[in-house]
Design a protein around this nucleic acid. Structure first.
Length: 471
RNA sequence: CGCGGGGUAGAGCAGCCUGGUAGCUCGUUUGGCUCAUAACCAAAAGGUCGUUGGUUCAAAUCCAACCCCCGCAACCA
């Protein structure tokens, strides 16, 4: 049995879980379940990124300790992940003592590639932060919130020397040793890599207090990268334990917006540690709402909990895994969601289960064992992470079964007393549906389970309430 | 000239790499069936494949120019 490690980006806990996080989880979970179906041993990481100023200041505003605030928000994500029935094996918090300690050890191991330098920029005393040149220009050199001119300020930062690894990173991307999916993102990343600057990886403590202290420098705290990215290996026990059973990851799932950090910064860290790079980095698009980016100011944000509440988990998983493109941006609307539920889940699949179970019961057709093999076309698509295409393939099988029932007219066979033919036909259909259930399992685990239960039972009985009831 | 993606039936997409009867899902219309959640099945209507020009016996597909949308560039997945 081979071992497979699957990683998801860890969300920053200064907000509530939204649709985008769900995409990370659904895609990785589908891959995890598929891998298990192939007989692989899966380790599956999820977690939360909890350091940084935003978390710190929001906690202060709310009048609670930063530890407590981080925990509360981390728990929100954990609950969300549980609600989606994500089959993770490891949950990491970047504030956990083990992670903090391991992170510091990683920093030490990277020291040959770290240097300190002065960072110059425009700073607002009121905001306690630097602004970009662009922001400076737009605001005419004065902070709009504090009505005070930005001042030129210089501070010490540690930097990670990306240049040490550029050549090698280009090589692994070009050769697909670290494969970036989809292909067009790979091109984008190669382009970005060309002029990727060294990365600032620390801040003075007076500016950023809520974070991992830089080892050997009491005045500096790690800024996001080494802290957050290293979670993928600290959760496995690195550097205390040998992680070679599971590392390199078979797949890391990330949103397109943070792909660059996973194809440049993260590989640089790994190369600095002498570790192999993830085999696949899969970048998904963003979910649009009515064709537009979701944003609070437009007011078109879709709340995943609300979608979840509408028709349950599998309807949620169905829509986002089948109708949302695995790699590109695509649109969610309530109308599309309702149509998918009614036409596809209820009419195509739910009704198929109902009619076939009824036919079997009337004609006393017994259940049969579930198949164990996976269709090869399906596997090809799944192995390429083309989940929505694989789902489409499964759905055509559902439609074919409906067709097949109409063509073979088992009710006529029953009427004419052609018992033997009837049994043969219905058994064939049951076999087909069980086949579908197996392929469906990575996407809709509960539904697949229900179908299997019905059609492997000694006596097939239609469910009392249909699988996807219509209102 | 910043980088990238895209413009194919009412909607969403595939086909383009490796030119040769334009395909899928939803929607619409009509017909059929009755096992089933008024579900299912079949058939039909509907496209000058963004524009212009080029290459070719032949272009959605290759080449050139142009127009239009979108994303990133800027710590919203």
């Amino acid at each position: 049995m081979s071992k497979v490690y699957i990683c998801t980006a860890i969300p920053y806990v200064n907000g509530n879980p939204h649709i985008g996080h769900a995409m990370d989880y659904l895609l990785s979970d589908t891959y995890a379940r598929y891998s298990r179906a192939k007989g692989e041993e899966v380790r599956f990481q999820v977690g939360t990124d909890e350091h940084g100023n935003k978390v710190f200041s929001t906690a202060q505003k709310n009048g609670i300790s930063v530890e407590e605030y981080a925990k509360q928000n981390s728990d929100k994500f954990r609950t969300f992940i549980e609600e989606l029935k994500i089959s993770y094996t490891d949950f990491i918090r970047t504030t956990s003592p083990e992670h903090v300690r391991r992170c510091q050890e990683i920093w030490r191991q990277l020291s040959d590639h770290i240097y300190s330098a002065e960072y110059d920029g425009w700073y607002c005393e009121g905001c306690e932060r630097f602004v970009t040149q662009k922001e400076y220009d737009e605001n005419g050199g004065t902070c709009p919130d504090h009505q005070k001119p930005y001042e030129k300020l210089s501070e010490k930062n540690y930097y990670l020397r990306i240049g040490d690894f550029k050549e090698r990173i280009r090589e692994v991307i070009e050769t697909d040793e670290m494969k970036i999916l989809p292909e067009f993102r790979k091109q984008e990343m190669l382009r970005l890599l060309e002029d990727a600057p060294d990365i600032s990886i620390s801040r003075p403590k007076k500016q950023l207090s809520w974070g991992v202290p830089v080892p050997g420098d009491d005045d500096q705290v790690m800024y996001v990268w080494v802290d957050a990215l290293s979670n993928y290996i600290t959760v496995l026990g690195y550097p205390d334990q040998d992680i070679s059973d599971f590392w390199p990851a078979a797949a890391q799932f990330v949103g397109k917006d943070i792909l660059r950090f996973h194809t440049i910064t993260w590989p640089a860290i790994l190369l600095g540690l002498g570790l192999p790079l993830p085999k696949n980095v899969v970048s998904h698009g963003h979910v649009l709402s009515n064709g537009q980016k979701m944003s609070k100011s437009i007011g078109n944000v879709i709340d995943p909990i609300e979608v979840l509440g509408k028709h349950g988990l599998d309807a949620f998983r169905y829509f986002f895994l089948h109708h949302i493109d695995t790699f590109a941006d695509s649109d969610f609307t309530w109308e599309k969601f309702e149509n998918a539920y009614n036409n596809e889940l209820a009419n195509d699949l739910g009704n198929l289960v109902q009619r076939l179970a009824t036919l079997c019961k009337k004609n006393q057709i017994p259940g049969q064992p579930a198949p164990t093999t996976l269709d090869s076309t399906y596997c090809e698509l799944m192995d390429k992470f083309e989940f929505n295409k694989a789902f489409d393939f499964v759905w055509h099988k559902v439609q074919d079964l409906n067709k097949s029932i109409d063509e073979q007219k088992p009710w006529e066979l029953a009427k004419n007393g052609e018992t033997e033919k009837l049994q043969q036909v219905l058994s064939g259909l049951v076999e087909g549906l069980l086949d579908v259930a197996v392929l469906l399992a990575p996407f809709l685990p509960d539904t697949a389970e229900k179908i299997a239960t019905i059609f492997t039972a000694p006596e097939i009985t239609p469910p009392v309430t249909p699988l996807f009831p219509k209102n």
